[in-house]
């Protein structure tokens, strides 16, 4: 078992991370080809789908520019800042990296749940959910601020004592695992696997706008978290992908900013400071009361 405890040099870890990331991206293009052929055979291939697919990669390009150039610096600075508060002294080896990935997945669960339930975070994450289709190109459909929220939810791992670069590695592994879930091609996997792990089936549910599928299956690698915390739903009736209120556009500018224009409109429309705050921090489905009919206090749930 010595190999589990042999220290791993950090450059080796980041090289591996780049290698995995790059190859998954390249192979996802090949897989997209398979999916497009399948769409054609099923006579579902049309200009709207192709436009949506291209726009997915345009949002990805914007996300990369923002993340690697602007956020990247802030991200690493924030991470190394938190390192000084490290509680445990944790070495980097296969065993501890594996534990870090499990914990990063738990952190991701809460980050993901937060971005669905708090409107200001939903304003950026809604981009990922605004496609009415479900194929591997949707995995790369990101909003402008999607790189901001992970910082807050993964900082506790650094305070716990994991190296910032190991945490970043774990985050990227969790993200990369999810990339390959965005497909209709794969049905249901063997039951033990479906029980423990997030699968294409579980993630189709997550992208559903059907009432029983809303705000379900937040998990990244493990679906166990959803089963534990009561947010699991099984794929039963056919999934209708996209938003409850669709954007009906393949324009990348509309796709990227619709969350913020919707948030802005809701805040502007909300009467009084408290309902404006609630429009920002409340859940996406909350609607401010009509002007003139507002009550002294915000209505209870």
């Amino acid at each position: 078992m010595d190999f589990l405890l042999t220290p791993i040099p950090l450059p080796q870890l980041t090289d591996f991370e780049t290698w995995v990331n790059d190859w998954v991206f390249v192979l996802s293009f090949a897989f997209l080809g398979v999916e497009l052929v399948r769409y054609a055979v099923q006579k579902r291939l049309n200009w709207s789908l192709l436009g949506d697919t291209i726009s997915n990669y345009i949002t990805f390009a914007g996300f990369i520019v923002l993340n690697y150039i602007v956020l990247g610096v802030f991200y690493l600075a924030a991470y190394f800042y938190f390192q000084q508060f490290a509680l445990f002294d944790i070495e980097t080896n296969l065993a501890t990296v594996a534990i870090c990935i499990v914990l990063a997945d738990l952190a991701y669960y809460w980050e993901h749940r937060f971005t669905h339930r708090v409107n200001v975070a939903w304003a950026t994450h809604t981009v990922h959910h605004s496609s009415p289709h479900f194929n591997i190109s949707v995995a790369n459909r990101f909003g402008p601020m999607d790189g901001v929220w992970p910082i807050f939810f993964h900082a506790p791992l650094i305070v716990a004592g994991f190296d910032p670069l190991v945490v970043l590695f774990a985050e990227i592994m969790v993200q990369t695992y999810q990339t390959i879930l965005h497909t209709e091609v794969i049905g249901k996997l063997p039951r033990p696997f479906e029980f423990f792990f997030n699968t294409p089936s579980h993630h189709r549910v997550h992208h559903g706008s059907n009432a029983q599928y809303l705000d379900k299956n937040y998990g990244g690698v493990f679906i166990i978290w959803d089963r534990m915390f009561g947010t699991f739903a099984k794929e039963e009736e056919p999934v209708v992908y996209g938003l409850v209120r669709p954007i009906n556009s393949v324009n990348p500018v509309v796709i990227w900013f619709h969350g913020f224009t919707r948030l802005g409109a809701k805040v502007a429309h909300a009467p009084g400071l408290f309902s404006k705050l609630r429009a920002i921090l409340g859940p996406p489905e909350w609607e401010p009361p009509e002007r003139g009919t507002r009550q002294r206090f915000a209505p209870a749930e």
Partner: peptide, 23 residues
């Protein structure tokens, strides 16, 4: 309760990781 359980898992995981060293 879910958040509390999560923090407990985080602490337990980090502690376990701190014991797993080649040293």
């Amino acid at each position: 309760v879910s958040l509390t359980v999560s923090f407990f898992i985080l602490a337990a995981g980090a502690w376990a990781a701190s014991t797993l060293s080649s040293h």
